[in-house]
C-alpha cells in the first residue's frame, strides 16, 4: 500500500463525507424553510403534474435559459449534458459487471468529454469577453470553471495522451466502495484528476454549485398556480393568524 493510495483513499472518503453531509444539511434546511406565499412565475402550471413537467423541462432542456440567451444556453447545456454523460461513463469504474447501458454509452461519453471542455471554455470566454458578465464575475466564478476544466483536461489527457492502468484503477475504485483498499496506479495525471474531483465534491454544498438542489426548491418554479382554488398557509403565518383571533 503506497502513501499515495492511502492519501487518495482518505481524501476521497473525506471529500464525499463533506460533500454528502453538507448537501443533506442544505437540502434539509431548504425543505424546512417555509414558503409563506404563492409566488410561481406565471404563466405557471395549475397542477402538480404540470409542475413536474415544468421542472423536467428546466432540468433537461434549460427552458428559461433558452429564452434568455442562446449563447449561455448553448455552452451551459452542452457542458451539463456532457458532464452527465461523462459521469455515466465513469460508472464502469464502479460496477462489476459493467451495466449494459454504461457499456453502450462509452463512445458517446468520450465525445462528451470533449464537448464538456468546449462548453466550459465557452462559458469562461464569456466571463472575459462580455462586459456585463465580466462585471459580475467573482474570483470563485473563474476558479470554479478552472477546476472543472482541470478535471476535464486531466481526464481527457489520460484517454488521449498518457494512459493510466485502467484495471488497477478500477480495482482501487471498487476497493473504496467495499472498504477493501487496493493500490492506486502511480500516475501524476490521475493524481491531479482525483485531487480536483475530491475538491469539487467537497466544496459542492458550500458554493454556487448549490444551484443544482436549489432549482428544485425554487418557489418561482416549483409552485402550482392555484392560490384561489387552494388556501396556502405556512406554519408561521398560521400561528400569526391564530394569535390574532
Amino acid at each position: 500500500m503506497t502513501t499515495a493510495t492511502v492519501f487518495f483513499a482518505l481524501l476521497l472518503y473525506a471529500a464525499t463525507l463533506l460533500g454528502v453531509a453538507g448537501l443533506v444539511w442544505r437540502i434539509r434546511d431548504y425543505a424546512r424553510t417555509p414558503a409563506p406565499l404563492k409566488i410561481p412565475t406565471t404563466p405557471a402550471p395549475t397542477t402538480t403534474g404540470g409542475v413536474v413537467l415544468r421542472m423536467l423541462r428546466e432540468v433537461t432542456l434549460f427552458e428559461s435559459l433558452f429564452k434568455a440567451n442562446l449563447w449561455i444556453w448553448l455552452f451551459g447545456w452542452m457542458f451539463h449534458v456532457s458532464l452527465a454523460l461523462v459521469l455515466a461513463r465513469h460508472l464502469r469504474y464502479f460496477t462489476e459487471p459493467v451495466w449494459f447501458w454504461v457499456a453502450w454509452i462509452q463512445p458517446f461519453g468520450l465525445y462528451a468529454g470533449l464537448a464538456m471542455v468546449a462548453g466550459l471554455a465557452g462559458l469562461w470566454a464569456r466571463r472575459f469577453l462580455v462586459e456585463r458578465i465580466r462585471y459580475i464575475s467573482t474570483p470563485s466564478d473563474h476558479l470554479m470553471l478552472a477546476l472543472l476544466l482541470g478535471i476535464g483536461a486531466s481526464g481527457l489527457s489520460m484517454k488521449f495522451l498518457d494512459h493510466t492502468d485502467i484495471i488497477d484503477l478500477k480495482a482501487f475504485a471498487l476497493g473504496l466502495i467495499y472498504f477493501d483498499w487496493q493500490p492506486l496506479p502511480a500516475h501524476p495525471l490521475l493524481y491531479l484528476h482525483l485531487l480536483l474531483v475530491a475538491l469539487l465534491i467537497g466544496i459542492f454544498p458550500y458554493s454556487k454549485l448549490l444551484h443544482a438542489p436549489g432549482l428544485f426548491f425554487s418557489p418561482g418554479r416549483n409552485q402550482a398556480d392555484n392560490p384561489r382554488e387552494k388556501r396556502h398557509l405556512a406554519d408561521w403565518a398560521a400561528k400569526l393568524e391564530k394569535a390574532k383571533v
Binding site: R26, D29, Y30, T33, S64, L65, A68, N69, I72, G76, L123, R126, V130, R132, I133, I136, S137, T138, D141, K208, L210, H211, G214, L215, F217, S218, P219
Partner: peptide, 13 residues
C-alpha cells in the same frame, strides 16, 4: 434562502 444560494452568475438576466 434558495435565491441567495443558487445564483451562478451566468449572466442570463
Amino acid at each position: 434562502k434558495v435565491y441567495l444560494d443558487a445564483c451562478v452568475h451566468c449572466g442570463a438576466c
